[in-house]
Design a protein around this nucleic acid. Sequence first.
DNA 1: CGAGCACTTGATCGCTTTCAATAGCTGTGG
DNA 2: CCACAGCTATTGAAAGCGATCAAGTGCTCG
Lengths: 247, 247
Amino acid sequence: MTVLLDTISQNCSECPIRHRAVCARCEPDELDELEQIKFYRTFEAGQTIIWSGDKMAFVGSVVSGIATLTQAMEDGRTQMVGLLLPSDFVGRPGREGAAYNVVANTDLVMCCFRKKPFEDMMVRTPHVAQRLLEMTLDELDAAREWMLVLGRKTAREKIASLLSIIARRDATPGKRGPTDQMVFDLPLTREAMADYLGLTLETVSRQMSALRKDGVIELAGKRHVTVPDMGRLMEEAGDDSDGGMLG
Amino acid sequence: MTVLLDTISQNCSECPIRHRAVCARCEPDELDELEQIKFYRTFEAGQTIIWSGDKMAFVGSVVSGIATLTQAMEDGRTQMVGLLLPSDFVGRPGREGAAYNVVANTDLVMCCFRKKPFEDMMVRTPHVAQRLLEMTLDELDAAREWMLVLGRKTAREKIASLLSIIARRDATPGKRGPTDQMVFDLPLTREAMADYLGLTLETVSRQMSALRKDGVIELAGKRHVTVPDMGRLMEEAGDDSDGGMLG
DNA sequence: CGAGCACTTGATCGCTTTCAATAGCTGTGG
DNA sequence: CCACAGCTATTGAAAGCGATCAAGTGCTCG
């Protein structure tokens, strides 16, 4: 873990998420100020970063790795409510306790700020608050897209929707055909996918197999996915693959 | 309609949503500026305020009445993704097109600002942007709570959850028993409830009947609801009625 | 009084869950 | 080097819940 930390530059100007995180809009002087209150923390895969209800001492950005926000009912049913990729923000300025469990799904590095100094800075420097508003509005859009998936799509459409979301975000476009092929590694276990989609892990597994059998996806190992035809996948997701105005 | 409009004071200082809307934090001089660019619009029940994909010319606040945000698939399946009550904000600064349909569920009055002047003002006056960030974070929390409902709750729990949300927000506490009784009118048709919860209207109707039969709620007419025991309703919703940290 | 609408209720169907067994992979220790 | 534990994933069979299809009720408004 320390090794991982050492590979991260302490210098914001060389930070891999510099242009996308909450600090994206900051001027050099503002960045200096952030640099003075920031510190890095690492978490191992599976480790809980924040427990729902706990007091939050810090906020921060995911630098590398993947984390999830989950809500749980007393009987154990759990629903993922957020998927945090590098540059995503963790924590809610202006609120004491955490509303969700935040769990590291892979080994993870976070760029943290103690909550109070960060909140003070938000009041003084509009660029941080502006960027955070932008990011929050984007998250709200994503959450609402997700609500359509949870409320109205079939299991097959849910899986196809999740795959297309991940593909659009992570994939390296392939070179083979005329159609836009996509290749990526699933960052989630079948159980995590089920928690994302409001399904059981068995249903996830079955629908993955069905999509493979129908040629919508190809699987190498459990996690490596090739999508030969993104248009086809979008159709399976129930999304308009052609000119739909809304993303 | 004009009648309704006439009953709304043009003066912000007498506005019923003054202290909760996006202008809540504004100083008098900022309020003057907003007052100069604002205008009121009315909509009739059932009227679509904004179509998904359309260019948004204005943003604004719901002054009175109820509106919903909905997303639709091509085959007609629709999911409500937002329920807008007085003081809630409509529109997304910094984006051209609307991502959802906005529909007036009742006769509605909105306090509108042309988008461009409002965005300009957001850059200059931090109080508007700060308040909008607060409101957006609250909406995001609500959306995530809702995701747990959509993804993991049974039909009965979904109905109970919706009723308890509406009760907590709209209800006048009753006086009868030692337990906290609540009385309110449902602002939604069965179909709108179904779209909110990812159910069919028949299932909504059945579960409403079941909750009535089991004494969890009492119905007078189709819309007037009495909850004799909020604790009981919360249990039915699958929420921790006692000391759960998270709301 | 009849049309239209919101809602209720019944019967059946089918998708997803549940319960259960099995396969494949990785790491550990005899 | 192989056996076995532990974990993730797959697959099968059966059950259950909500959707679908279909009447029927009650209210409002012309």
